[in-house]
Design a protein around this nucleic acid. Structure first.
Length: 456
RNA sequence: GUGGUUGUAGCUCAGUUGGUUAGAGCGCUGGUUUGUGGUACCAGAUGUCGUGGGUUCGAGUCCCAUCUUCCACCCCA
């Protein structure tokens, strides 16, 4: 056969139904973003490599899609450089642009670049695709959408509170009840690292701790030991592994563990503030849960960190995450602009809603009425009526060919079009329309006004 | 990046120790029905067996490579 075309690994085509469902999620998120006062911006699909490189750690750099320079990109390479066969040197020479890896770093670049036009605190949202050169898996793609909302230019903890409310509002609007919003604070993690004498191994420490619910206490300890954290330090962690009770109880235990760390105590203070505000305001359907093991890989977070997991029983990684970053724009030369933001993983939310069958019937509504085609004269008559219906906001269309009735009916059936209008000799003469309800099979001849009112 | 897994009709899949012309169900097209769909009955079409190489008299089946799928790591939405 002629070689069938394919799409690249980790990418997807979306059919009409999928797009409708995705739009439903996007529209829901968007309207909540706007209710909370966020304004939309968009940034380019690709950025200069040096804007992105080094912002996500070594692992992140590896996963950034690099764009080959145009033209004779080998021209500038000297023989000696070429013969070094060094990936990093060569890459920087032949690739100066890269596809965006997330929306946060481009946003930071945007803020710095447009700082004089922006009114702070700046609340923006952004819904665009991002790309990662990752190996695909369940819920992991190489092209996927992120829906981000961030505020920069305010250190108020009420922003964190607002974001938790926003998560709750979005998932409630999507009828996805019972999601868990896990919260932690980077300062607490720093404090713990300090207490066990592993400040310099903060990243290794948090990455290992993050795996607790997945690989268990013993393996976490083993990994920490392997990363060079002392046995003595690990022993001090013991109370951490046996944290229990509600938010308040856990916080009290943490206070004991962190009594010697100022940073740690500051983190606890922040958590308490957020928790008491949320307790006061209440959440509709989500649960807020303190999770000391929550780490999140991105190293720019400095305060609160969030992660949202799907309701129990759904096997899916996190469907959203975010946190406070005190110095994100610092890397682009703008100091002292604190930001906090959250992200929704559209593609994963889609999979969860699909699994739980939570898409409303209405997202599938397409054409409301199909006019059967019985030749040019009737078709023209029908098109007049169709124009009229459309002006009343009714989705209507004419079957384009004067094909066999059965074929036309079948078409309406396949596309789940709920009504069919038949216009033939009789109807033309009496200036009426035979309106047929496809699910009940009922049919009646009505004038145009009735057609409009019945289909509305 | 590491380890495993998958690919046969539009879809879901069967295909024996290598052996003639590669099958099923669903779907599709047409008909039973010249203005009535979803059910029923009848008839029909569709494949370089993911791609490239190799072994063999002979490969869907064995070997190698490559792409793809899914999964576990790493990391992450």
């Amino acid at each position: 056969m002629a070689q069938k075309p394919t799409i690249p690994k980790g990418t997807r085509d979306f059919n009409a139904e999928t797009v409708a469902k995705r739009n439903y999620i996007i529209d829901t998120i968007k309207s909540q973003f706007q209710l909370y006062g966020f304004q939309p911006i968009e940034t380019p699909s690709f950025e200069n490599s040096d804007t992105l490189m080094g912002k996500y750690g070594d692992e992140g750099d590896r996963l950034i899609f690099k764009i080959l320079n145009s033209g004779d990109y080998l021209n500038k390479i000297s023989d000696s450089e070429y013969n070094l066969r060094s990936e990093s040197i060569l890459t920087s020479k032949i690739s100066e642009k890269a596809l965006r890896y997330d929306l946060t770093v481009p946003f930071a670049r945007y803020v710095v670049q447009h700082q004089n036009e922006i009114d702070f605190p700046f609340k923006r949202y952004q819904i665009q695709p991002v790309w990662r050169a990752d190996r695909p898996q369940k819920g992991r793609f190489r092209e996927f959408y992120q829906c981000d909302a961030d505020v920069v230019g305010s250190t108020s903890l009420f922003q964190e509170v607002e974001f938790i409310k926003l998560y709750d509002a979005v998932f409630t609007a999507l009828n996805l009840e019972g999601v868990t919003i896990k919260i932690n604070n980077r300062k607490i993690l720093s404090g713990i690292a300090e207490v066990i004498g592993a400040q310099d191994k903060l990243i290794d420490f948090t990455v290992a701790l993050d795996k607790l619910d997945k690989i268990g206490e013993d393996k976490v300890k083993a990994e920490m030991l392997a990363k060079g954290i002392s046995q003595n330090g690990i022993d001090k962690l013991q109370p951490l592994f046996s944290l229990s009770g509600d938010f308040r109880n856990q916080v009290e235990s943490l206070k004991t563990i962190l009594s010697a760390s100022n940073v740690g105590l500051k983190g606890i203070e922040e958590l308490e503030f957020i928790d008491s505000a949320i307790t006061n305001l209440g959440l509709k359907t989500a649960n807020l849960q303190l999770d000391v093991t929550l780490a999140r890989g991105l190293n720019y977070y400095t305060g609160a960190i969030f992660e949202v997991s799907a309701p129990e029983g759904v096997n899916m990684g996190s469907i959203g995450g975010g946190g406070r970053y005190d110095d994100l724009t610092g890397i682009f030369g703008l100091k002292d602009v604190s930001g906090v933001g959250i992200s929704f993983g559209l593609d994963r939310i889609y999979l969860v809603l699909e699994e739980l069958n939570l898409f409303p019937q209405s997202v599938k509504d397409n054409t409301k009425v199909l006019f059967i085609n019985f030749g040019d004269k009737a078709a023209l008559f029908s098109l007049n009526a169709i124009s009229e219906l459309r002006s009343h906001g009714i989705n209507a269309e004419l079957y384009p060919d004067s094909a066999k009735m059965k074929k036309q009916m079948n078409y309406a059936n396949k596309r789940d079009i709920p009504y069919v209008v038949i216009v033939g000799e009789d109807e033309l003469n009496s200036n009426t329309y035979a309106l047929k309800n496809m699910s009940s099979g009922e049919q009646q001849k009505v004038p145009l006004e009735d057609l409009i009112s019945k289909l509305k």
